[in-house]
């Protein structure tokens, strides 16, 4: 361990950290990597658990999961993988506690099993590059979605500006853009087939 620490340069990227940890099992390395994302993990946990102490405990428990899993698993995209692990951990925790938190209804729609892997793709969908060719698809969207999408992606306005320009509610703008984006993606993928 002593020699390895000196013979190899200190890892910088996530992948280097993962490789070094997998080779040595050195918890210090894993700890350094985890610290980078700890606040994000904490925030994600808080989103689901709605309790500071429970979220802290969850952060530590997730670290324990990493200690074991990263020794054997090869993870290509640590960030998104970590998100899945954190999310699943919190959802499992909620399920085992039979807690029904407000506005969270993932037990009914089976999101625990399906959702964690929804955002695994390394290359995010690049709407801007396809948008000009997608006028047909844009036409399929509702007026609100189309307007919001245009302002957001083509004129690069932020949510607040769109609210000011259109008079829509801020949360509505958010969902218009999210849903509009999803619909466009589905439409474009259909056209490619």
């Amino acid at each position: 361990m002593f020699f390895k620490r000196f013979s190899k340069p200190k890892p910088t990227t996530d992948a280097e950290y993962l490789a070094a940890y997998q080779a040595t099992g050195n918890l210090e390395l894993l700890g350094e990597l985890y610290e980078r994302y700890m606040e994000m993990v904490f925030a994600v946990c808080f989103k689901y658990l709605r309790d500071e102490d429970e979220s802290k405990d969850a952060v530590m428990q997730i670290f324990e999961e990493l200690v074991v899993k990263l020794r054997t698993h090869s993870v290509e995209n640590f960030r998104s993988w970590l998100h899945s692990v954190a999310r699943n951990h919190c959802l499992m925790h909620l399920r085992s506690n039979r807690l029904q938190t407000e506005g969270v209804d993932f037990f009914e729609d089976g999101s625990v099993e399906n959702e964690p892997f929804e955002h695994q793709s390394d290359e995010p969908f690049e709407l801007e590059q396809n948008l000009s060719k997608m006028t047909d698809c844009l036409e399929t969207l509702s007026d609100e979605q189309r307007t919001s999408i245009r302002l957001f992606y083509l004129e690069e306005k932020c949510y607040k500006e769109i609210t000011d320009l259109t008079g829509y509610d801020l949360n509505k703008v958010k969902s218009y853009i999210q849903n509009g984006k999803r619909n466009l993606k589905i439409c474009i993928e259909k056209k490619h087939e």
Binding site: M40, S80, H83, F152, E161
Partner: peptide, 23 residues
């Protein structure tokens, strides 16, 4: 406004960031 737009776009693209932002 421009920075906000950038962050919003990134939030749309990454679920981890979006979840964390919500939290």
């Amino acid at each position: 406004a421009k920075q906000m737009h950038q962050v919003e776009k990134q939030l749309l693209n990454e679920a981890f960031a979006a979840d964390a932002a919500e939290g």
